[in-house]
Amino acid sequence: MRVLAAMSGGVDSAVAAARAVDAGHDVVGVHLALSRAGGTLRTGSRGCCTIEDALDARRTADLLGIPFYVWDFSERFREDVIEDFISEYQAGRTPNPCLRCNEKIKFAALLERAIELGFDTVCTGHYATLIDSGDGLELHRASDSAKDQSYVLGVLNADQIAHTYFPLGETPSKALVRAEAEQRGITVAQKPDSHDICFIPDGDTRGWLAEKVGTATGEVVDRTGSVVGTHEGAHAFTVGQRRGLKLGVPAADGKPRFVLEVRPVSNTVVVGPKEALAIAEISGQRFSWAGPAPKAPEFECEVQIRAHADPVPARAFVSSDGVRVVPETPLDGVAPGQSAVIYVGTRVLGQFTIDTTVSAVPVDA
């Protein structure tokens, strides 16, 4: 099998490529250049896709004895991930850029080019597993629950899953992957995992957004519409946020207040008590299925709204209008723009982008 190994420069993709070679596949390594800033350097665990990462990937490819290339996807990344991130915040939504990168870059643009060049599959270091159900391949959680990355892969469709290879999915722990890398002589065996948003390596999302879209003074109001403070740009806030609120009027009960809603058209931020963050229902129009679609329009499932959140038992309803999910217990601090990934057991059934939420706490409560 001809395998294109996506090599980020980290230990996971390095070991995944090595296992593909061990399995006897015809492997070619590729690193995706996602930034036009060629001198970008990595700082500890912040950032990824830097020039240092490309060099680390090349060293691993040389060790494995496989061809290696760097492909410039910076323009596609800018359009599909960075600009999408900015526009979503401007619309008062909270996007997940890593999930969007998987959808638009690693398993769309990269896979499309791989197939055009005659490769059978793309190999990555993601922690997830694929199971052939007889009706088609299904995407499932990884054996290591602490490293499971099935949430950010929930955007994959059946065709993409059919051309995907996850050699690390059955590995019980990341420690074993690092130990294997050490044994193989891979230099990035102890390289820190990347955190934060890769194109905002200093972690200052608020400052980065202010630089891109500017600032504009607006009002902070409570759930009744009373003005309780001001802000310098609604795009800098997200649902569930507590820090950074400039509130001149304290709550009647003296308790802290949290962001409940962002209204970009009026440049208004709505705040309220922590209890009001409880969400009884979520829904969205943009959805996809990770393999065979559900056979019934209504079914029991579990829903996960963040990469490292616990799944919550729920009931899903599918129609021509989209997907609606009612959890057994309220979800906490859900923001429009987030992705809700639907599971049935360990299987990733699909996902949808959250458009609307229904609070479990009435305004007059």
Rank of each mutant, 00 (worst) to 15 (best):
A61R: 08
D62P: 12
D62T: 13
L63I: 02
L63D: 03
L64Y: 01
G65H: 00
G65S: 00
I66Q: 01
P67T: 03
F68H: 11
F68S: 08
Y69A: 13
V70F: 02
W71V: 14
D72A: 10
D72Q: 12
D72M: 10
F73V: 02
F73W: 11
F73Q: 04
F77R: 02
F77Y: 14
R78G: 11
E79F: 13
D80P: 06
D80M: 15
V81R: 04
V81N: 06
V81H: 08
V81Y: 07
I82Q: 04
E83Q: 12
E83Y: 05
D84T: 13
D84W: 11
S87K: 14
E88H: 12
E88A: 15
Y89R: 04
Y89M: 08
Q90K: 03
T94R: 15
T94E: 15
T94F: 14
T94Q: 15
P95T: 05
P95L: 09
N96C: 13
N96F: 14
L99D: 06
C101L: 02
N102K: 09
N102F: 07
E103C: 10
K106T: 05
F107H: 10
F107Y: 12
F107S: 04
F107V: 02
A108P: 12
A109K: 00
A109D: 04
E112Q: 15
E112G: 15
R113V: 14
R113L: 15
R113W: 14
R113C: 11
A114I: 07
A114M: 09
I115G: 06
E116F: 07
L117C: 08
G118P: 02
F119C: 00
D120N: 11
D120T: 09
D120R: 03
T121V: 05
T121M: 05
V122D: 01
V122R: 00
C123L: 06
C123N: 06
T124V: 07
T124Q: 05
H126F: 01
Y127T: 07
Y127G: 05
Y127L: 08
Y127S: 09
A128D: 08
A128S: 12
T129D: 08
T129S: 14
T129G: 08
T129F: 13
T129Q: 15
T129I: 13
L130P: 07
I131A: 13
D132S: 10
D132L: 06
S133Y: 07
S133E: 02
S133D: 03
G134A: 08
D135E: 13
D135W: 10
G136Y: 08
G136T: 03
G136K: 06
L137S: 01
L139I: 01
H140L: 02
R141P: 08
R141T: 11
A142C: 12
A142M: 10
S143T: 15
S143W: 13
S143I: 14
D144W: 02
D144I: 03
S145T: 12
S145H: 08
S145D: 11
A146N: 10
D148H: 07
D148A: 07
Q149W: 01
Y151E: 08
Y151S: 05
V152N: 05
V152R: 06
V152C: 07
V155G: 10
L156I: 11
L156G: 09
L156W: 09
N157L: 10
A158I: 11
D159Q: 15
D159T: 14
D159W: 15
I161M: 03
I161Y: 02
A162R: 09
A162Q: 05
H163S: 00
H163D: 00
T164F: 09
Y165A: 04
